[in-house]
Design a protein around this nucleic acid. Structure first.
Lengths: 168, 168
DNA sequence: TTGAACTTTCAAAATATAATGAAAGAAATT
DNA sequence: AATTTCTTTCATTATATTTTGAAAGTTCAA
């Protein structure tokens, strides 16, 4: 396998992976491409490499920037904008975790809290089962929330602890 | 909020959550419904509660069974089949983790291993960057794999460690 | 202020995914 | 073995998502 083949393979695999993750295929492919390229790419570079339209490129690059996975770069003397991806895969993971927590876990926790207040006959079998389920899920969600938050913060904690070690 | 409203709210929230998770909306809704119902439901019950077709019901219940989240129950004297969901939310989480690891992490690890073998001029900048990325991602994936495997096994470990405590 | 170079938007088209329901298939009952 | 009850399949239809590309918008240099 040569470099071009390997690149294509990586981009396509990362793309279908992303699709399963609620991130759309093109967004994941652009991300994959930027991940493996040492230098910044322009919108035209991305369009050409992935054979996608300008609009599609623009939309998905913007979304990657929203997620914090990609940065807009201005190269002195160039009119065009260029883009680079965060290369530290650990950071990448924490950014994705942050975004997904916000979109997925936070909303369901909000609903679960409301559902705790559901009113009804406490002797009713269905009511009891419902309250039980909601309580268990709420506890589990709270636990998950803690774990993910710790992970998200691990990056900055790592930074601070390194700093502290240096000072000591 | 009364029970019926709370139920509907829970089912719809769990459903849109599932959609973001690569699990389809109906599958997640059926799961939600079975999670909060104390007794087994038949296909007809599910169809009526969620207003979906027989075919759709059949397909998604089967998929839930594949994931290990739902069990087919035979009630003596009844011709129909009934379904119940695993209620222990911790178990539910490990089953989902197991299935998603199989579908998502395992395939990308396989590809990453192949990509390690990509051939090319080791002095080439792009080649170096590519190998670097792939190596880092591979390491991260291996770490993630370990963590998830530990989580998946935690359920049985919990069982064994309880057992051992009893014997001691 | 004009126009060239580039970016962004968005309605329409293309594609992908999910749902329906009638028909075929099984299994139990008479 | 014929009938009834229930389950499964799958071609068709419906829905949702993604992509395109032309037009509008922006920025900058002359």
């Amino acid at each position: 396998m040569n470099l071009a083949e390997a690149k294509a393979q990586f981009i396509q695999t990362w793309g279908s992976l992303g699709a399963q993750w609620g991130i759309n295929r093109t967004m994941a492919q652009i991300h994959a491409l930027l991940l493996i390229m040492p230098d910044p790419l322009s919108a035209d570079d991305i369009m050409e490499e992935l054979n996608i339209s300008r609009g599609n490129t623009n939309m998905n690059v913007r979304e990657l920037i929203n997620w914090g996975l990609v940065e807009r770069i201005l190269i002195p003397g160039e009119r065009k904008e260029f883009f680079v991806a965060e290369k530290d895969i650990w950071k990448v993971a924490t950014y994705i975790a942050r975004e997904r927590k916000k979109r997925e876990l936070d909303p369901i926790m909000k609903v679960l809290n409301q559902l705790q207040q559901a009113e009804g006959d406490p002797k009713d079998k269905e009511m009891k089962a419902f309250k039980d389920s909601i309580n268990n899920i709420t506890k589990f969600a709270a636990q998950t929330d803690k774990t993910i938050s710790a992970f998200i913060k691990s990056e900055e904690n790592w930074f601070y602890s390194s700093l502290i070690k240096l000072i000591k």
